[in-house]
Amino acid sequence: MSNFSASINRLVDLVALAGSGILSLVWARVALSWFSNDITKKIQAKDRARDALIGTLLFMAAVTGLLYGLAHWVLTGS
């Protein structure tokens, strides 16, 4: 069981590392679009910012263990 937990944690670390890179890229692109002079890019930036926000919140909740804690609390009550 400890092996499984360790491998899951390792996977989470890997995905979190990769996700951090993607996160910075996504927000950089959103910022570029948001402050662009092109009106089309400005319109697209709103949708992109929404997706990026949802992704970031999910990402943070997963990495900090909030989701796991919630699921664990629902199941075991502790």
């Binding site: 499984f4 937990s5 899951i8 996977l11 989470v12 995905v15 979190a16 990769a18 996700g19 993607i22 996160l23 890229l25 996504v26 692109r29 959103v30 992109r48 910012a49 997706d51 990026a52 949802i54 992704g55 970031t56 999910l58 990402f59 909740a61 997963a62 990495v63 263990g65 989701l67 796991y68 699921a71």
Partner: peptide, 19 residues
């Protein structure tokens, strides 16, 4: 424990969708 992994996957997909 795998909830974290699936949630991370979904988060990455959301971020990719933004790009």
């Amino acid at each position: 424990p795998a909830v974290t992994l699936v949630a991370l996957g979904v988060a990455v997909l959301y971020l990719s969708r933004s790009v």
